[in-house]
Design a protein around this nucleic acid. Structure first.
Lengths: 109, 109
DNA sequence: TTATACCTTGGAGTTACCTCCAAGGCAAGT
DNA sequence: ACTTGCCTTGGAGGTAACTCCAAGGTATAA
């Protein structure tokens, strides 16, 4: 339970491949990660939290470009607002899905 | 309100480009559409409903390959089951999103 | 008959998001 | 000194889902 993880460890904890994590840093989705004395990446708890947020946003359909905007936001309240908007969009799509489900249900008697 | 639409009309009604609709037929996501005497595609109400379902599934994050499986299902009850599973997956992701939202809310006091 | 407004196909090109790999550096164990 | 197991970079390759032509056919209106 240390506050420092290697790329392998963070990869296992988050469920993204090491390549993907490095790729996210390359495209500046993730801010530059600290390095140890021999140039290896070292991840903090904060990095892990951010990565977890990124995964959640990705899983709920946000594109990496949109997530970049999220990451660039400075305040918690701005991020909060963006999350709410995102959630609202999904809910709208979910309502449409629910409508289709109900139509099928009726068609089955 | 006729039961027959040109590709241009269906494109406008559904909100997909004509190219995309033809592409969906090419990759066999959509079954072969009827043609008129000079080879133009003509879409029925049934085609329109299916396309609407496809759009909804796409908007809720289903891949075209998954949607192909959905389209290939023969019975309404099989489709219904697949929709419920899909909905459940999204809800799980939504719960995770909600968790993050609540953390932000707490962090703002 | 010519202009326009549709439509057709095949195939090339594009964007997003990885995924894989080669070549190589560092360090701890045997 | 050598093997093992980490890690690094740069760049090529891959898949999904479009998107955009070019070349050409048909029908209606002027």
């Amino acid at each position: 339970m240390e506050d420092i993880y290697s790329i392998k460890q963070i990869s296992q904890q988050i469920g993204l491949s090491e390549d993907t994590i490095r790729y996210y840093e390359k495209i500046e989705l993730l801010p530059k990660v600290k390095r140890n004395n021999i140039g290896y990446r070292v991840y903090s708890l904060e990095d892990r939290d951010l990565l977890n947020n990124i995964v959640c946003l990705k899983n709920t359909g946000m594109t990496l470009n949109q997530i970049k905007l999220y990451v660039k936001l400075n305040t918690i309240s701005e991020r909060y607002k963006m999350l709410l908007t995102h959630k609202k969009n999904i809910e709208d799509q979910m309502n449409e899905l629910q409508r289709i489900i109900e139509i099928k249900l009726k068609a089955m008697e």
